[in-house]
Amino acid sequence: VLLLKIHATKNCSGVSLKTQELYAIVFVTRYLDLLFSFISLYNTIMKLIFIGSSACIIWYIRFHRVVSQTYDREQDTFRVIFLILPCLLLGIFINHEFTITEILWTFSIYLEAVAILPQLVLLQRTKNVDTLTGNYVFLLGGYRALYLLNWIYRFLTEPGYRQWIVWISGTIQTAIYCDFFYYYFQSWRRNEKLSLPS
């Protein structure tokens, strides 16, 4: 959705490069297993799509002659190091196995939970949020919220299925969107442009 929006409108105002870069870090550190394990064709294709689309979005915002001019550089100022470092420490200390790939995988789970924050802060600073950008954040949050249902279903149907690190991180991730969801639905119901209160 976001890549299509940027490609079609040649405009990335209201889009946080910081969040996209955090997602790129999340996908690369999590999908290292592309190199040594195969789960399904769907799984492999989606991993490649996630890595590829976020790389494309970053390229557009950073380097595209037209798109890069529309980037809200002065507004997108979230200090991502304050997210990356704690997640890395958490990944080193709370994991299933003390190996490089497992620590990086766990780090990516923690980082993903908070990766949307720079985008939410930028949306709050943007007076009139572009409809497509609002829809992108809604779909991203909705996609993760659906995982909660999936985890319940798998817990009930697969003996021994549990993964506390993923469940807790995913629940926090979805909770971070709650406020956004509220204003998204309100603006939808009133047929108004989305704007988050500051």
């Binding site: 999590r30 196995e97 995982y147 999936n150 549990r162 993964q163």
Partner: peptide, 10 residues
């Protein structure tokens, strides 16, 4: 081992 979850989700 159930405590060693397969990373089969995205």
């Amino acid at each position: 081992d159930p405590d060693d979850p397969a990373h089969d989700e995205l």
